[in-house]
Simulated assay, not measured.
Amino acid sequence: MSDITKIAELIRGIKFAMVTFVNHEGHLHSAPMTTQDEEFNGTVWFIGAKDSDLVRSVPGNAQVNLGYSDPAGHNYVSINGTAELVTDQAKLDELWNDGYNAFFEQGKEDPNIQLIKVTSNGAQYWEGSGRVVSIIKMAKAAITGDTAKLGETKGVKL
Rank of each mutant, 00 (worst) to 15 (best):
T34Q: 11
I11K: 01
G26I: 14
F46S: 01
I7A: 11
A123G: 02
L10Y: 00
F104G: 04
D146T: 15
V118P: 00
I116R: 00
G122F: 04
N61T: 04
Q63L: 13
Q124N: 05
V77S: 01
L158H: 12
P59T: 07
L10F: 05
D37I: 01
I14T: 09
S52Y: 12
E105R: 04
G48M: 01
P71K: 07
G42R: 12
D146I: 14
V58H: 03
Q36W: 00
T20L: 09
N101I: 12
T20C: 13
T147S: 13
V118A: 00
S69H: 09
D146Q: 15
F40Y: 13
I116G: 01
S78G: 09
D3M: 05
N41H: 10
K108F: 07
K157F: 06
G145Q: 13
T34K: 14
A142C: 10
D93S: 12
I136C: 14
S129I: 07
I4E: 05
V19D: 01
A102G: 11
K140S: 06
Q124P: 00
T35A: 04
A139H: 09
V132K: 15
I11F: 02
A17R: 00
T43K: 09
G107I: 12
G122N: 10
S57Q: 08
N61W: 09
L85D: 03
N75K: 06
K117Q: 07
V64C: 04
A17P: 05
D98T: 10
T147G: 13
V44Q: 03
V44A: 01
S52M: 11
D3H: 01
Y68S: 06
P59K: 10
K50Y: 12
Q114N: 04
E84G: 03
V64S: 02
A123C: 08
Y100A: 11
N23C: 04
N41P: 04
G122H: 06
I47C: 00
I47Y: 00
D51I: 08
T144A: 13
N65L: 15
A90N: 03
I136R: 15
T153Q: 14
N80G: 13
K50R: 14
G128D: 11
I7L: 08
A90V: 09
S2L: 12
D110G: 11
I116C: 04
G60M: 05
G48D: 03
S69E: 09
N65H: 06
I113T: 01
I135M: 14
T5H: 10
D51C: 09
T82P: 07
V118Q: 00
D3C: 10
V86E: 02
N41Q: 08
Y100R: 02
F16R: 13
V44Y: 05
V55N: 03
D93R: 11
F104H: 10
S30G: 06
F16V: 10
G42L: 09
W96A: 01
M18D: 03
T5S: 13
E127A: 07
I4G: 02
G48A: 09
I79D: 01
N41K: 12
E127S: 13
N121G: 15
